[in-house]
């Protein structure tokens, strides 16, 4: 075999190799962007509020290439919580959202969960967690309710018994919390999520501006 023939053979083999590698790469190729995993811990017993928070979370997840690792818990200790967090870290979750820990986490008052990339949606255990999501004016107002509106409150507002109430937009709380985790979780630059409650009166109800938030 002459040198030139050998060169041609090597050239053809190289082209073939490039073709095979490219095909394999393409077959493995996925047009989907990289999926980010975020863990969510919430109470076993689902309420309308947790359901709305999850709606917000899921709506965000649906359009942002995120995979949720949802854990329903009933009653857990500090150790259990630490174990959950450590397992989620092993599962490559970029962070954990803890919803209403006051409903299932049994811990001392001086307990401090020092861990990165955790946002707790809580109003009563803010001291235990570094970063929290909450409604800013909920504790200051007297008439504060979680969305959706109950029939009684609705009737009372329509009938003028109550002039107005403050409604906690739990959907927005869930949405903004996971948005914060998605955008800043990897960078480790999480900060508190603060949502203002919506003032709802008869006029607001009749305007139809918040229909979807008010209905179940």
């Amino acid at each position: 075999m002459t040198n030139s023939r050998r060169k041609h053979l090597i050239m053809l083999m190289l082209i073939g190799l490039i073709a095979i590698c490219s095909t394999l790469l393409m077959l493995k190729r996925n047009n989907e962007p990289d999926i980010t995993t975020i863990a969510v811990v919430l109470p076993q017993k689902e309420t309308i509020a947790t359901s709305r928070i999850m709606d917000g979370i899921r709506d965000y997840v649906l359009n942002n290439s995120i995979e949720l690792d949802v854990l329903y818990v009933e009653e857990i200790t500090e150790d259990d919580m630490n174990q959950i967090l450590s397992e989620e870290t092993k599962n490559n979750a970029i962070g954990t959202i803890i919803i209403y820990p006051e409903k299932y986490l049994k811990c001392d008052e001086d307990y401090r969960l020092i861990s990165e990339n955790i946002i707790a949606i809580t109003e009563f255990m803010q001291n235990q967690f570094g970063v929290c999501a909450y409604f800013s004016n909920s504790s200051k107002e007297k008439e504060v309710y979680d969305a959706p509106l109950s029939t009684e409150i609705f009737q009372e507002i329509i009938n003028g018994i109550i002039t107005y109430i403050h409604l906690n937009n739990t959907y927005a709380l869930g949405y903004k919390t996971i948005e914060m985790m998605d955008l800043n979780g990897k960078k480790g630059k999480l900060s508190n999520v603060e949502i203002k409650s919506v003032k709802v009166d008869k006029q607001v109800i009749e305007s139809g501006d918040f229909d979807e938030l008010l209905v179940e």
């Binding site: 959706p148 029939t151 009737q155 139809g208 229909d211 979807e212 008010l214 209905v215 179940e216």
Partner: peptide, 12 residues
């Protein structure tokens, strides 16, 4: 136009 009503729950 759609509006809210109250039956067993608040509905549109």
């Amino acid at each position: 136009d759609d509006e809210l009503v109250c039956n067993t729950s608040v509905k549109r």
